[in-house]
Design a binder for these strands. Structure first.
Lengths: 225, 225
DNA sequence: CGCCGAGTTGACCATGTTCAAGGTGGGTGG
DNA sequence: CCACCCACCTTGAACATGGTCAACTCGGCG
């Protein structure tokens, strides 16, 4: 939990490749970006900082979140390989970003990017797509949070993550129960109890603490309402 | 509640002005858009429809929402004069849109817009800003929904709307209690009780059913945590 | 005047939070 | 290699909060 300021071992300043911008790597785009390695639980940027860069996840998982006055934390999103975060409408970040696991990122200088977009139609369109996807992602999260029951939220969360992995029926969680709780607007105890309940009902298996096997996807879908 | 299909009296097909794209009307942009008038509670588009157009609100209030299998409704956002909605990453709408009040919209053909953006740097940038704002708006909503207490949600809602009107201390609600409840993930009873509580505590006044006077903004901010 | 939709209020109940007490497992040092 | 430790997780019991159901009020309109 000790949040040291971001340490970036091997700040590979060799602004080499980094072209690949959207998930389907468009060969046309070759834009400069700096590779960064961030250790687990380190801060990438903080709410209120100048939004000089935005980032693409190469590997690992990042959380964007907000800290409330009373110490609570709300997680806005988790970002995995290929996702872009930190692209904001304002000149300052509205959220903080932290590494859930050790991760590798590409940092893009926002101003440079937007300048390039002025003369590059394809890049400009990609930026638009990124922003629209970010919007859809946030809306999807709202829908999850708007659900009334803890079971609906947890089931929805599991289904969301089942789609990202290669094997649709096994989820390897990168985050702690606390992270999940802060993402779903629940307490850690409720998340734990709900997962136990799902296991008792034969809907999932919990072979280890960070692994969840989905045993009955249909039942999960029903529970997610 | 009778949702007739969208009726558009006076479908002013005269694709006249409509330039003004962002809130600060950029003189440079003159893009074609069709003016539409929509009656209260009529549908503007439905989830799953082809996302052919996106819209700017000229006057009135629009809600974008999702309907769940069990009949519940979740409201994703309210859109007021100057707001743009219906600009989505996919080729189909992910949400439905309905008129909360009678309203006037400008419909932009998405494809045409994106084509124009290819050769128009300024327009392209404006589209990007619109998308980023949409993202920030959705994130803000997530933060509201993630709050634990009903009081925090309602207080946050009131503060959000206090900033939009000319007079910061009087809110003229366009929507019903049910709309508010569906927006905050609460029941209509809880919204009602919470507002009554705030009135008892001298934080607000409820002079009429659709008007709220904010008597103590500082207290509200505290309650919103 | 009376109806009707929208909002409020109350009593009861279900659900999730809180507080507190165990487990569990991976890593470290003896 | 084992014992210990610590962070993370699970479980239980009491409690608080919001949901549900039902009755009632209010205001506008025919």
């Amino acid at each position: 939990m000790a949040l040291q300021t971001a340490k970036t071992p091997a700040r590979a300043e060799q602004a080499l490749f980094a072209g690949l911008f959207l998930k389907q790597e468009t060969s046309a785009q070759r834009v400069v970006g700096a590779v960064q390695n961030i250790a687990q639980d380190c801060e990438i940027f903080a709410e209120g900082n100048g939004a000089e860069y935005f980032y693409k996840v190469v590997s690992g998982v990042v959380r964007t979140c907000k800290f409330l006055a009373d110490g609570r934390r709300q997680i806005d999103a988790f970002h995995t390989a290929g996702d872009i975060f930190g692209l904001e409408p304002s000149t300052q970040y509205l959220l903080s970003a932290e590494a859930v696991t050790d991760c590798t990122l590409i940092a893009y200088r926002r101003q440079k990017m937007e300048a390039l977009a002025g003369s590059d139609q394809l890049l400009s369109r990609e930026l638009l797509t990124v922003a629209m996807r970010g919007m859809a992602k946030a809306q999807h999260h709202s829908l999850l949070l708007g659900r009334r029951g803890a079971m609906e939220k947890v089931a929805g969360f599991l289904l969301d993550w089942s789609e990202s992995g290669t094997n649709q029926r096994v989820i390897n969680l990168a985050m702690t129960r606390q992270d999940i709780a802060d993402y779903l607007g629940l307490t850690i105890e409720t998340v734990s109890r709900t997962l136990s309940q799902l296991e008792r009902d034969q809907v999932i298996e919990l072979p280890s603490i960070r692994q969840i096997r989905l045993r009955n996807l249909d039942a999960l879908e029903d529970l997610a309402a």
